[in-house]
């Protein structure tokens, strides 16, 4: 049963000084799963990934990564994990090809030349292989980093915002590729701030201020939040939003194009508010809560707890 889990950690905690940045997180990720890791800026996502691949030592907690103990077998873990850093961390003064070649050598990739060539072809950078990595645009750097961390065919990918700044077409190609590899058994733990990407993951975890707040499939996460959302359309939405804030039952009011999303966990209170403000040519309609509504709600609740 255990062999089924690519990541199986409990109680993972990390403190910087007296600030707890990751607080008692448990996470199980099955092999072949694409697991989304979401949370606001500074919530501890990068720190958590770094602990998984042995870059940081957890202050507490234990577990295994690919069956290797996190604390004692970091060397083995590193061989089979591909970690893509949030910030570009390849050598800007090496060419694209030299960077890939370096990584391939380090991992001892069999048939190194071919592997590098294949990677370059797949990237569509074969013609620019001699260009210095530092001269690439932001999105291309991102794609190079992604290609580099997959060159040794890892069993687990830890991707820290791999698609930040990448154009939609490349993003779609990336997700196609990830799903193809996952079908072949690759496990992916990926952090992102994009909702569409969150929905493309098999399962999600949401973390805020170091605490894991919720996890499950997108549908489970939405259901567990117990959020009711109304969509309002009509004139004077901006003024309406101002007057809705602070009403009992109204937890968030968000502009969505020409409509307003009003959500809260107290369905009855929210229905009352809807009745009260439904005049003046405005239409109120119950809609499905989206992941974004859920996450914003989670984040605000977490902040309240944090402040308290």
């Amino acid at each position: 049963m255990k062999d089924d889990l690519a990541i199986d950690v409990r109680g993972i905690t990390k403190r910087f000084g007296d600030r707890t940045v990751v607080n008692d997180i448990a996470l199980q990720v099955r092999r072949g799963e694409i697991y989304g890791f979401l949370g606001p800026n500074g919530s501890g996502k990068t720190t958590f990934l770094r602990m998984l691949c042995g870059l940081l030592t957890p202050d507490a907690g234990s577990g295994t990564c690919l069956g290797f103990d996190l604390r004692t077998r970091a060397g083995e873990i590193k061989k089979h994990v591909g970690y893509m850093t949030q910030r570009f961390s390849f050598y800007e003064d090496l060419s694209i090809e030299e960077n890939l070649d370096f990584i391939a050598r380090i991992y001892g990739v069999a048939g190194r030349r071919e592997a590098v060539n294949r990677s370059l072809e797949a990237l569509g950078l074969a013609a620019r292989r001699r260009q210095l990595a530092g001269q690439l645009s932001g999105g291309w750097k991102q794609r190079l980093a992604l290609a580099a961390c997959m060159i040794h065919q890892p069993a687990l990918l830890l991707l820290d915002e791999p698609t930040a700044g990448v154009d939609p077409k490349a993003r779609r190609d990336f997700w196609e590729e990830i799903h193809r590899l996952a079908a072949e058994g690759l496990t992916v733990l990926i952090t992102t701030h994009y909702m569409d990407e969150a929905e493309r993951c098999h399962r999600l975890a949401y973390i805020a201020y170091g605490n894991l707040l919720t996890r499950g499939t997108a549908a489970e996460v939405v259901a567990a939040a117990g959020l009711t959302t109304w969509e309002v359309s009509g004139p004077g939405l901006w003024e309406l939003a101002e007057s809705l804030r602070g009403r009992p039952g109204v937890e968030q009011v968000v502009a969505f194009g020409n409509t307003l999303h009003v959500s809260g966990r107290d369905a009855a209170a929210l229905a009352a508010v809807a009745g009260e403000f439904s005049a003046a040519g405005r239409a109120w309609r119950r809609v499905e809560s989206g992941l974004e509504d859920v996450f914003i709600s989670l984040m605000e609740t977490a902040r309240d707890n944090w402040a308290a």
């Binding site: 770094r50 042995g54 850093t85 910030r87």
Partner: peptide, 13 residues
């Protein structure tokens, strides 16, 4: 300083 250490440390080197 350039951040490449993070990558290097993540490899088995």
């Amino acid at each position: 300083e350039r951040g490449t250490m993070e990558n290097l440390l993540a490899t088995p080197v």
